[in-house]
Design a protein around this nucleic acid. Sequence first.
RNA 1: UGCCCGGUGGUGUAAUUGGUAACACACUUGACUCUGGAUCAAGGAAGUCUAGGUUCGAGUCCUAGCCGGGCAGCCA
Length: 563
Amino acid sequence: MTNKEANQETAKPLNFIREIVEDDLRTSKYGGKVQTRFPPEPNGYLHIGHAKSICLNFGIARDYSGLCNLRFDDTNPTKEEMEYVESIKEDVLWLGFDWQDREYYTSDYFDKLYEYALQLIKQGKAYVCDLTADEMRQYRGTLTEPGKESPYRNRSIEDNIELFEKMRKGEFPDTSRTLRAKIDMASPNVNMRDPVMYRILHAGHHRTGDKWRVYPTYDWAHGQSDSIERITHSICTLEFEDHRPLYDWFIEQLEIHHPQQIEFARLNLSYTVMSKRKLLQLVEERIVNGWDDPRMPTITGLRRRGYTPEAIRYFADRIGVSKRETIIDVSLLEDSLRQDLNKRAPRAMAVLRPVKVVIDNYPNDRVEELEAVNNPEDPGMGTRKIPFSNVLYIEQDDFREVPPPKYFRLSPGKEVRLRYAYIIKCHDVVKDSKTGEIIEIHCTYDPETKSGGSQSQRKVKGTIHWVSAQHAVDAEVRVYDRLFRVEDPNGDEWKSFINPDSLEVLKNCKLERGLVNVTQQERFQFERLGYFCVDPDSRKDRVIFNRTVTLRDTWAKIEKAGA
RNA sequence: UGCCCGGUGGUGUAAUUGGUAACACACUUGACUCUGGAUCAAGGAAGUCUAGGUUCGAGUCCUAGCCGGGCAGCCA
């Protein structure tokens, strides 16, 4: 690390949450302890937005010698499933974080929560209410008008205890009664107008089975769960800001450990959607091929796409944390990935849209083994041999019969360097007589220009990649583009912004010989094209790659500007 | 029309807590290059939502507005 980098490292500013944590450490607010938690609801797959929260919570715990728990917020048995619990654990681990033995569930606290509820009833701070959902809404008032008190609000403590007990035993039908906190129906904060703490639900729970017929609401369960786990800093998203007074109220009535809730803005990324509801819809309506579709912003999708945990963590670091609602440009995510992969991914040559090149003056029975560097960024990664012969494939894009201005690649009468091989010159083109499609490009090579040879110094403008036809490995490559055509595809019309060309399957790709034996998830840089990784669908006899991200492409910009 | 939160280049995040706006991404230009990659260098781009005020001095403090977001599930 250079001095400059070291300085940047130490000068790295704290986000506002870390400032609060450091203040609390200085004043010993929590006895010098830091305890955070990541509390997902197991009703969907984790996405890049959750990654931000995971990095925040686990990162703070790590940096201030604290601990971070994983807690599943499983208070709604009608929506939650074990499938999601498993996927969430896998994703957190993959991101590089470890909750060790602290895998908790809100349902672990159902007994305790029930006791707390009884305590509030006995304090005259909670009551059983017989209002229907409709009636309750009417009694709640509006944003500008106060609510009315429920007629059941002043039941005796004894009646409340008895009724609540019967609710628990399942003696009443679903939704017939609720347990409510007795706070203030005229509060300007609607959350304080006697919120529901328990609802009757005759539903089995994925962990507690048939034990309960009443289930705590999130508002009642969350703060107390944090308290039970001795959380010091309860970091959550902005929409819970209005709920904080309620959580504080519960904690104060109960006189139990009081965590500090801190809210931050959730992540939005351009050209994608992030809400669980929308992601679920994309999956269920088969707009994408499952939660792990490489176009999805889910962790599992990004993983399949070829993203690395390092890149995602670096990205989370770079976006910062604040209370402003913003949309982060995907290019920052892509840049984070390229920075990581550039250093680590071995290079290979691959032709995605092949066109045949015949070197007329190269003996057709000859094969040379040429030396290629595995990663110019890291000499330690060594070199490999690649075969060269008289029939090659090059990229269709790398030949133009009529070259536009500033085109450095192959065209009639022009020369290019074949990477790690020779300089060739094009002198003829064979076309299909019917379609006009170019079938073969005829070239001659200059034997004096072999890479690394004594006469190899001659300069040509362009260098292109190639694959020897007789040695090529056939492959399928899935090329992805952004899922949506607009930066902010939200609102009611969101589905109309879906990019119909977000997936292109190329079935006739030619890879260099060395890629016959690849393993799942293995990543490469295909020179001049981008980073690619082996898809789980890949088989020994049918190699399949995903394009993770393209390289920066200056030519594409020039061409676009010209057009 | 009640309560809560936010407003700094195109996009994000900073600004030693009152000292004269920085970093990254994106963009532009150039150098270098057997990846139009990588790298390096340079540049344009905000005077900090507005209007007042306090102060020698305000992105930071005060006042009044304006704009954006959230909240009326027995969802989380």
